[in-house]
């Protein structure tokens, strides 16, 4: 049997194992954004990816349209009924928005946690090895995207920007398994209930909302939205609806399973929301949780 590893090769092997461990440690480190060589590589690779994936996306959506063609009639009927309600809704929204702006002026509070500027983006790649729930979009620093911005589709929040380069950014989905993947949320009801979206149940395909006080009453079907308290996401982005409530392992808090409103699969177009108000100046009634942080400083 020929010798599998000569001395020289053994040294190369050991050297690269050390390099491997070092690089993995480097990339797992808690860091704000990637380094400039990584950004450069991402831009170059992203340029090629753009060229490849844009035509492929067009062909794919063409086939999708053809597949949907036979559903057109039913869809049309459904949309027509919605349309009648829409006119009323639109005038209501316009009136309320105007009211809101006027009242804000009276209060001298022009900005709110809910304000954001959406930036349209197209998904150019999804990790082909399908281990990490990350997607790459075609907008980057040159369009004002920064790490930690909220990313959503028309139906709700899907994740946040993990890292950016000049012309692309990487988005971590809510379903990604990462201990730092947390969103401060609230359940809308008679009394507002706060909690955290933390983790994803792979089998049930549900998000887990933890840290709900054990005495609060949550009912099935209540809407879950972002609270704007984390300092990252704007307030009021839809996440999903509560489907089940279970006590946690120590019985001190409760965990709710939340059916996500937006699909995390087969994403094509997304919006990145640039939050306008970045300093934390909470509303009077929302203040308690933030005060603790301020005292700590």
């Amino acid at each position: 049997m020929p010798q599998f590893f000569t001395n020289k090769r053994l040294i190369i092997l050991l050297g690269s194992i050390i390099l491997l461990v070092a690089m993995i440690g480097f990339s797992l480190r808690d860091r704000d954004n990637i380094t400039w060589p990584e950004k450069f590589v991402k831009d170059v690779t992203g340029f090629g990816q753009n060229i490849v994936s844009k035509p492929a996306g067009v062909v794919e959506s063409f086939f999708d349209d053809v597949r949907r063609l036979h559903l057109t009639y039913e869809e049309n009927e459904k949309l027509r009924t919605h349309l009648e309600e829409l006119a009323q809704l639109e005038s209501d929204v316009a009136r309320l928005e105007k009211d809101n702006a006027e009242l804000r002026k009276v209060l001298e509070k022009e900005k709110s946690l809910a304000d954001y500027e959406p930036v349209q983006a197209t998904v150019i790649a999804r990790n082909p090895d399908r281990w990490y729930e990350v997607i790459t979009i075609d907008q980057g620093e040159s369009n004002g995207i920064e790490p930690d911005m909220a990313v959503m589709t028309a139906s709700g929040l899907i994740g946040k920007v993990q890292s950016t380069s000049k012309f692309t950014s990487t988005v971590q989905l809510l379903s990604a398994r990462d201990s730092q993947n947390r969103v401060s949320v609230l359940i809308q009801g008679k009394a507002t209930i706060y909690g955290l979206i933390e983790g994803y149940d792979e089998e049930k395909k549900m998000l887990q909302m933890t840290k709900i006080p054990s005495d609060s009453k949550v009912t099935k079907g209540q809407a879950v939205t972002t609270s704007g308290l984390g300092g990252v996401f704007p307030k009021g982005l839809v996440i999903g609806t509560v489907t089940e409530l279970v006590p946690d392992e120590f019985g001190l808090t409760q965990t709710a399973l939340v059916q996500p409103a937006a699909s995390f699969y087969d994403l094509e177009h997304v919006m990145v929301s640039k939050r306008e108000m970045t300093s934390i100046l909470p509303e009077e009634e929302d203040r308690q949780q933030v005060l603790i942080e301020e005292e700590g400083l």
């Binding site: 690089m23 990339s27 590589v41 991402k42 690779t45 990790n127 090895d129 993990q162």
Partner: peptide, 17 residues
């Protein structure tokens, strides 16, 4: 492998090695 790590996974070193 290095490009793959940087662009898609973000976990440097895996495919590279």
């Amino acid at each position: 492998g290095f490009l793959f790590d940087m662009f898609y996974t973000g976990l440097l070193g895996a495919y590279f090695f």
